[in-house]
């Protein structure tokens, strides 16, 4: 019988390549180290694997660092461990379980190797989640997790300063200038 973990393993490999898989395996082997303080981690190994998979598929390494490079899964693990109340923690566990179920229903194969099918499953899930209103699709949990992954990434130092741009002390106000002169989206 194929376990959920094997499904995720295959999904990560197909979507994200060896770099993410390495992160996934590392996280699975050393789950406590995902939390900076050494305190118990919030995510189970399977959940961490899923978040890692999603983070890497949504924001991969390109010409700038990706979500895995900046430590998004570990940040989220710490966030839910230390910020979230018990009900919010429970809701997040549930939404991750729901996302894993959605991925299977969208055709993510239970065994590794079928790269196209796995990528298609997440692509279809993403498309379905945005096809209607936030809740109409029943996929609001996926959108919420995706938004959080993006928030953690774009407010990380590489996300804010390499992928986008950020100035701690702008020191001047330019009300409007050709966008080519200003550059990319401000991270904040």
């Amino acid at each position: 019988m194929t376990t959920r973990r094997q499904v995720l393993h295959g999904l990560i490999l197909s979507l994200s390549g060896a770099a993410a898989l390495s992160t996934f395996q590392g996280a699975a082997a050393r789950p406590l180290q995902a939390v900076k303080s050494g305190a118990p981690a919030f995510y189970s190994a399977d959940e961490l694997a899923l978040v890692t998979c999603l983070a890497d598929a949504i924001i991969p390494r390109t010409d700038t660092p990706g979500a895995i490079d900046v430590g998004v899964p570990a940040y989220m693990d710490h966030l839910y461990l230390t910020w979230a109340s018990a009900p919010t923690q429970g809701a997040h566990h549930a939404e991750l379980a729901a996302i894993a179920g959605h991925l299977e229903r969208f055709g993510a194969p239970r065994t590794s190797g079928d790269t196209k099918s796995r990528l298609k499953a997440l692509t279809d899930l993403d498309a379905a989640a945005f096809a209607y209103g936030t809740d109409a699709s029943g996929l609001g949990g996926y959108r919420a997790v995706k938004s959080l992954i993006a928030t953690v990434y774009y407010l990380s130092e590489p996300g804010a300063t390499q992928e986008l741009q950020y100035e701690l002390v702008p020191g001047r106000w330019i009300a409007s200038a050709p966008i080519g002169d200003i550059g990319r989206t401000w991270a904040q």
């Binding site: 598929a57 949504i58 924001i59 692509t123 945005f130 774009y154 989206t185 904040q188």
Partner: peptide, 10 residues
């Protein structure tokens, strides 16, 4: 600015 609440991947 940026948003995670938009369709698309990668």
């Amino acid at each position: 600015g940026w948003t995670g609440d938009r369709p698309g991947l990668g």
